[in-house]
Structure formats: structure tokens, C-alpha cells
Design a protein around this nucleic acid. Sequence first.
DNA 1: ACCCGCATGTAAGTCGTTACATGATTCT
DNA 2: AGAATCATGTAACGACTTACATGCGGGT
Lengths: 186, 186
Amino acid sequence: MNTLSYALLGLIARKPLSGYDLMRQMRERVGPLWPVGHSQIYPALAALERGGLARHNVVEQTERPDRKVYAATAAGRQALRAWIQAEASGRPLRDEFLLKTYSMWLLRGGEAQELIERERERRARSLAEYEGTLSRLRDEWKGEIDRGDSPLFASARVLEYAILHERDYLAWCAETLRLLGRGDPS
Amino acid sequence: MNTLSYALLGLIARKPLSGYDLMRQMRERVGPLWPVGHSQIYPALAALERGGLARHNVVEQTERPDRKVYAATAAGRQALRAWIQAEASGRPLRDEFLLKTYSMWLLRGGEAQELIERERERRARSLAEYEGTLSRLRDEWKGEIDRGDSPLFASARVLEYAILHERDYLAWCAETLRLLGRGDPS
DNA sequence: ACCCGCATGTAAGTCGTTACATGATTCT
DNA sequence: AGAATCATGTAACGACTTACATGCGGGT
């Protein structure tokens, strides 16, 4: 059982889904948090089923290929709870952009500023995207989203975190540009 | 050439180092950003040398095993600059704790609060650690650390980012606890 | 005609972690 | 005596990415 399996379990514990659905949900909702390709999903679902943590029904379709819709079993929900409460493994950030800034002293003239400016713009775009998703979620689930025991509350909190994180990145870029500007006025 | 190779190049572009030195520097300085085991380092250094991006001298020692001290070549620094300015690959966060909170609606009673409280404490500890490292760095390199073209400036900026990030995490935990407390008063 | 979305899979290759392997010196 | 630090490597395994593979229906 790896982290990916728990991510999938977390989704099918909310609502039964097919492998294809899971692929889209992982891309759209959990995407920035834990991206997965469909080639990982299908074997993982088979493994969950072998372990008794999920079960599937075949839904036959005439106009499209049949779907295998997976749902979490009681044992699956139990395993998910246990994983959540287990000691965190302390996985690292692995931030490629920061690793690049670590060597930005090699750049000349305004190259460092350009690099950071480009990143600032990318982050601003993804911030706007998260904010859009969150406000759509809020509009759609007005009452439920504030209840602490609701799946929607958890979704919203994760999005809030992503938003905080992007804001932070923007602030860091702005401050770095300011500091670079002082020492080296173009 | 993978990301790890550039991380190593970034270090030996600052100052020649052995594989063992690199292991420690990656653990102590770049650690939270891009952790590496020594088993990755030695083959990667050999590959850098095959590509002409680094070269090593053997430093013989009597009391300890001999060291292979690697330095970046001009081609190595050039490759590093090119990588820094290349399009970012947009690698993801892969945050296991957030993935867990995504399913926290499964928990009962105060379990969610306990989970977040534990994480808050862990983050507070690593914040203190980063702050300590940064203030030590500042004390040691007073003049150089503010010059935008200095390696120390880059190191400090990366640490600043890590600090911002931890503060953010703390704020998020506090807010989440507040929201959980309102809906479900123990 | 060609590409996109739906739908499910397998295979090959890279990256990263953990364990295996060796051997001297220094600290407890 | 046993553990930790210095110092360099190899091997096995697991996780992740990218490409291969198939096939129908709808849009341009």
C-alpha cells in the first residue's frame, strides 16, 4: 500500500468512481497535490480490490466502453483512517524553482530578475485558478462547506492551503525582486 | 542530465567538494528542498565527469580514505546557467499531509483536531530550525549576504522561502483548528 | 480525413530509497 | 566492545513518467 492507493481510496470513499473518473478527479481536484497518470491508476485499483479495500461493479454502456465503477469497502475506509492517523513520513518539498534560485548568483545583468518575474506570473495565474475553483465550490455547496465533518469542508481547506501557498510565493518573488533591484539598479 | 545533477553542479560551482561533502551539504543546506542519498551522488558525479561538466582530483589522506574532490568546469557552469533559464517543468507539491486532510471528514470526535495539532507542532519545530540556520548564516556573512550576485544571497533567499512556507503552514493549521472548533465544540 | 473525449489497460525506462559491502579511526 | 564518522561504491526494489495499444462516437 503506497500513498497513491490512499489518495484513490480517499476519492472512492466519497463516491464510487471509475478509473477514468479518478484520473480526471486527480487531475482537477487533487492534481497540484498528488498528480497521477492513468497508467498508475488501473493497476492500483486492481491491487486495492485484491486487498479487499475496494470493490467494483461493471456498468454496461452501449454507445461507450463499459465502465468499472469502484467503491471503498468498510475495510477500505478503516485502512484510510488508519493511514491518516499514522506518523507522517515527512516527505520533502522538491521545489525545482527554488533549486534554480539557489544558483542564481551565476546569472548576469537582469537575468535573475527576468527569471523571477516569469515565475511570479506563472504563480499569479495558478493563484487565480485556485481562487476561481474555490469560489465555484462555495457557490455550489453553501451550507455543507462549513460543516467540519463534511468532505466538502476538507476539499475547501486543501484549496485554501494551495491559495495561501501561491500568495506566499508571490510575496517571496516580490521581495526577492526588491532586494535584487537595490543592489543592482538597471 | 536530471535535476539531481544540476543540484550537485550548483554546489560544486560554488566550491570544490567530494561526494561525501556533497552528501552532507545536500542534507544540511539543500535538504528540505531536494533530499538525496549518497547512493545517488556517486553515480551522478561519474556521469557529470563523463559529460565534461565536472572534473575531480584525488586528494590522498593517510589517516582516512582518499577523497575525490569534484569541481565544475566552465562547460558545467554554462550548462547550469542554461538549465536555470530553461522553461520550468512545473513539478508538483506532493504534500502527504494535505492529502490526508483531504479525507479528514472520515475521522470522529476530536481526531481531526489532534491530527492537525500534531502537524502544527512539527512545523513549529522545523520553523525554529530554519530560523536558527538563517540567523547563523547572517552572523557569519554580514556584508556578503545582501549582495544580489553572491551565492550567500541565494542561500538566504531559499531559507527565507522555507521560513515563509512554514509560517504559512502554521497559520493554515490554526485557522483549520478554529473552523473545526466552531462546528464541533468538544 | 483527423483530432478529441471516453474507457481500459501494458511496457519500458527513469528516478529515488533502502539495503548490502568494505575498512580505518575515534568516541563512549 | 560497540557505535559513530569518514569515504566510496553496487544492487534491488518501488514509484513515477512516457509511450504503446485498442476502439467507438462526435465535432471541424
